[in-house]
Design a protein around this nucleic acid. Structure first.
Length: 300
DNA sequence: TTGTGTTTTATTGCCTCC
DNA sequence: GGAGGCAATAAAACACAA
């Protein structure tokens, strides 16, 4: 808002005297806010300009005549608004941070300020509010990021743990096979009874379990119970027999995770995340599908 | 007291809206 | 085209450590 605009502003009852920067080259020293009126001045307080700059621009003699006299005046130092004025303005800002012309004039009269000063104060106050808001938004995003990062690291750990579990179980099954089970024999038998060729099993464990199952009820129970007995504290062991996770596509893997018992473990801090909208799934974190997908893509 | 960093007041130029 | 908003910036006022 340039100072010169006030000369054409019909809504202002008081018109700013011409500000030096509008008429003088920028190399001249700043002459201060000649129009500035302190609250103390208005109330007959301890202000130092003694009403010298209370005169409106017209009172100073108008555009041409007043100009010279105005520039001859000693430079008035820029003065801050009083605490009372600021408090009043703050309350007004809290009610509404935009300033209609009527409100501006009313505030200016109540505070003994130029309407322009009130407008500038609101402008600067909005800028400060925006800065604070940006800082808050940044902090919030930072917290969300940290939470996602922690969850991501938990997922990585869980993935590694499951991989190790798969390897361990595979070793045990292979060892069991070596003790007397011939998988080739059962595979042939199976094909013959069905009268059609079955596709090879997707992973060694599944193949082994298939073959073991067809050996008869006794051995089936034996293998299963051995595996579970040896890993009692891992209730997730049964998942090993459903699919080999390392061979899953990303979508399949996501699907598995979102359906699995791991949910409460993987997302311990879910309740701390603020949602702008109800999440599509329990692990969307308020991101839309694409963002959600991107986040999941980090690790795979 | 002084140097320095921060805050506040004000200006400038550009943009959007009516 | 005028009015008003905003970003960038200047400069005075202020706070504070050394």
């Amino acid at each position: 808002m340039a100072g010169g605009r006030l000369f054409t502003n019909n809504t202002n009852t008081l018109i700013d005297p011409p500000h030096p920067p509008l008429f003088l080259s920028s190399s001249l020293p700043f002459l201060g806010s000649r129009s500035m009126v302190s609250f103390e001045d208005v109330q007959g307080g301890k202000g130092s300009n003694n009403g010298l700059f209370f005169r409106t621009y017209e009172e100073n003699g108008g555009e041409e005549e007043g100009m010279e006299e105005y520039l001859m005046q000693p430079a008035e130092k820029k003065r801050r608004l009083s605490a009372e004025q600021v408090e009043f303005l703050e309350k007004s800002f809290e009610e509404e941070n935009k300033l209609e012309p009527e409100r501006k004039t009313k505030l200016a009269k109540e505070l003994g300020l130029q309407p322009r000063q009130v407008a500038i104060w609101f402008q600067n106050r909005r800028a400060r509010w925006k800065t604070k808001q940006l800082e808050k938004d940044y902090d919030s995003l930072q917290a969300t990021f940290e939470s996602l990062k922690a969850n991501y690291e938990n997922l990585l750990k869980e993935k590694d743990r499951l991989k190790a579990e798969v390897a361990s179980l595979t070793e045990k099954v292979v060892a069991r096979e070596k003790q007397g089970v011939n998988p080739n024999q059962t595979e042939v038998k199976s094909s013959e009874t069905n009268g059609m060729q079955e596709p090879p099993a997707a992973n060694p464990i599944a193949a082994t379990v298939d073959s073991v199952s067809s050996e008869g009820e006794g051995s089936k129970v034996s293998v299963k119970s051995d595996i579970l007995d040896s890993d009692d504290n891992h209730t997730s062991a049964s998942y090993v027999f459903e699919a080999d996770q390392s061979d899953l596509s990303q979508d399949e893997e996501e699907n598995l995770i979102s359906r699995s018992f791991l949910h409460p473990y993987i997302f311990p801090k879910l309740e701390s995340v603020e949602y702008s909208d109800p999440p599509e799934t329990s692990c969307s974190f308020g991101f839309d599908h694409e963002d959600h997908h991107a986040i999941w893509s980090w690790s795979y």
